[in-house]
């Protein structure tokens, strides 16, 4: 499967990945027009800073054994057998947030505005040119690679 591989040493903490993610999920917007103040503006990836270690990118791994899928009681989260990506169906989701509780890396979150859905990486719907965060990274700290399971 394709996974966003992280080289944290290269990350400068510019947060272009955050903006690209928000923009990719705000229809018709681009880097210049994206409304970061919108209540819908939610990033699916995070950069944490640690005084000792520097910048630490936290991105959904679409895990081989996804705890979020195992915890999902509505069938909204499923691991796609072909792409290997963990897909989310907002219409099935009942917003119980067991997945938020079960993600060991703290990647998942409820949506801020309505608390009726989960904000989760969708790998930009497997677009041929790859996820928007990867395209936006000026340092190639995140790159898409094929990994064997």
């Amino acid at each position: 499967m394709k996974r966003i591989i992280i080289d944290r040493e290269k990350c400068d903490g510019c947060l272009n990945c955050n903006i690209a993610c928000i923009s990719a999920h705000e229809e018709g917007s681009n880097f210049y027009t994206v409304n970061l103040q919108s209540p819908d503006a939610e990033t699916r990836n995070f950069i944490k800073f640690d005084a000792g270690k520097g910048y630490l990118p936290i991105f959904c791994r679409h895990c081989d054994e996804p705890e979020c899928v195992l915890s999902c009681m509505s069938g909204a989260l499923e691991k796609d057998p072909v792409s290997g990506h963990v897909q989310y169906d907002e219409n099935k989701c009942a917003a119980c947030y067991m997945c938020v509780m079960n993600c060991p890396f703290g990647v998942l979150k409820p949506d801020k505005k309505t608390r009726t859905k989960v904000i989760k990486c969708d790998f930009c719907d497997d677009k041929p040119d790859g996820p928007s965060c990867v395209k936006a990274c000026p340092k190639q700290a995140i790159v898409v690679k094929e990994v064997n399971l």
């Binding site: 992280i6 944290r8 944490k48 630490l56 791994r61 890396f105 703290g106 690679k145 990994v147």
Partner: peptide, 18 residues
């Protein structure tokens, strides 16, 4: 506290570990 305080990566698979 967050996962960042225990951050590690599996170099082969790219998955996180503690």
């Amino acid at each position: 506290l967050s996962f960042a305080d225990f951050y590690d990566l599996d170099q082969q698979t790219g998955e996180y570990k503690y």
